[in-house]
């Protein structure tokens, strides 16, 4: 039990400290690295409470894909040189009230959810669903995800699809004047249409179309 506690506190301290460092560190790329460290320690915590599937998906989706794209954008935009000024200057201090309001809202939401879960368990559907310990975590997740929560699951999938299509539509632009490579055209080209023998007259030259 002591080993369990040691690991739990190590991971949670790393998670909290790196979450603070995400906002506090001066270099934006360092912020992203701290975010990655945060994700990893949270997935370790998930694994410790037995939610192994969730922990692994957290690693694959957030650390393996989302954070890579974050890093990608931060590096490409060259914001690394921009120093992150914390509570300094007129610009950033204007955002403090908005930030405070949002964080208080989130704080109260968490308190309501956790308090309700603790003291009024009957209003939460989760407690009524199957939580057998005999079958594995992944197995039980699959059993409820595609039966009780199939509509929620499908709707969240649709939302993601709409977001993806929307992002592609927003960034897609058709550029004219580009020569695109067409594999079918290249392979199906015959010698007859590719090579032409011309009689070149002196001082006239040859005009090549296209």
């Amino acid at each position: 039990m002591i080993a369990h506690a040691i690991f739990f506190y190590t991971f949670s301290i790393i998670a909290v400290v790196s979450a603070i460092m995400v906002t506090a560190s001066k270099n934006t790329v360092h912020s992203v690295f701290f975010l990655i460290l945060d994700f990893i320690s949270i997935s370790c915590l998930f694994i410790m409470i037995g939610a192994e599937f969730l922990g692994m998906i957290m690693l694959i989706v957030y650390v393996g894909a989302v954070a890579v794209l974050f890093l990608f954008v931060v590096m490409m935009l060259n914001v690394a040189q921009q120093k992150n000024q914390w509570f300094a200057g007129e610009q950033s201090s204007r955002h403090i009230p908005v930030g405070l309001i949002i964080s208080t809202l989130i704080f109260f939401e968490i308190i309501i959810v956790i308090g309700g879960w603790k003291y009024k368990p009957e209003i939460f559907d989760i407690n009524n669903s199957i939580t057998q310990t005999s079958i594995s975590n992944t197995h039980s997740l699959g059993q409820v995800l595609y039966t009780d929560y199939i509509h929620v699951f499908q709707i969240s999938g649709m939302i993601l699809l709409v977001a993806m299509v929307g992002a592609i539509v927003l960034t897609f632009r058709q550029r004219s004047g580009l020569k695109r490579q067409s594999y079918i055209k290249q392979i199906s080209r015959e010698r007859a249409e590719g090579v032409e023998v011309l009689e070149v007259q002196s001082n006239k030259g040859v005009k090549i179309d296209d």
Binding site: M56, L59, V63, G64, A65, V68
Partner: peptide, 16 residues
Amino acid sequence: NVGILYLFAVSSLGVY
């Protein structure tokens, strides 16, 4: 239990 997911996760972290 989630061996294959672990392998996949670690190989996707390799890019870092």
